[in-house]
Amino acid sequence: MNIFRITGDLSHLISIFILLHKMRTSKSCIGISFKSQVLYLIVYVTRYLDLLWTFQHSAYNSLMKIIFIASSAYTIHLMLNDFKPTHDPNIDTFKVEYLIGGSAILALLFPYKWTTAEVLWSFSIWLESVAILPQLFMLQRTGEAETITTHYIFALGAYRALYIPNWLYRYFTESFTDPISTIAGIIQTILYSDFFYIYYTKY
C-alpha cells in the first residue's frame, strides 16, 4: 500500500462524507445527479461481488467495499425518499443507456477472463470511468454549482487520478500491471480534467 493508493482511497471516503453531509445539512439533493449516483451503485455492486469469496483476504479492502456499497445505497435512499421533492429530473437528462451499453460491450470484448465475475468487474471499471458524466452534464446545464458539490466532484475525481501514480509505482516496485484499470483510470481522469482545471483556478 503506497502513499498514492491510500491518499486516493481517503479522497474517495472524503467525497462520500462531503456528499452525505451536504444533503443532511441542506436537507436537499439539489445539484446532485441521481443518474450518476445510480451508476456508482451499479459500479460498486458489480465490482465488489468478490466480497462474497475474498472477504477474509484483506480487512481494509473489505471494510472499504462495504462502506462504498452501503453509502452509495444510502445516498440513493435519501434521494428517493427524504429529499425526493428537491430532485428535479428535468435537468438530469443525460442518456446513461449509452454509458451502460458501451461499458458492457468493452467488458464482454476484453475481460481478463470470460467468467461472470471478471466480466462484471471489467464492466464496473469502464462504467466508473464515465459515471460522472451525468453529474458534469447537469453542472454544465445549471451553470453555477454549490461550492460543496464542487468539492464532492473534485474529491471523487482525485481518487482515481491518484491511482495513476499508484499503478506507476507498483509497476516499478512489484511489476504489477492492470491494463483495464489503467486505461479506464486515464480516461476517467481526462474526463475530469476540464473540471479539475476550473477547480484549481477557482480555489
Binding site: 482511497d9 468478490d50 479492502n61 467495499k65 462504498f68 500491471t177 492492470d178
Partner: peptide
C-alpha cells in the same frame, strides 16, 4: 508480467 488474478485494489 501478468494482470493480477486477485483484485487487491478498490
Amino acid at each position: 508480467v501478468v494482470a493480477t488474478p486477485f483484485k487487491d485494489e478498490l
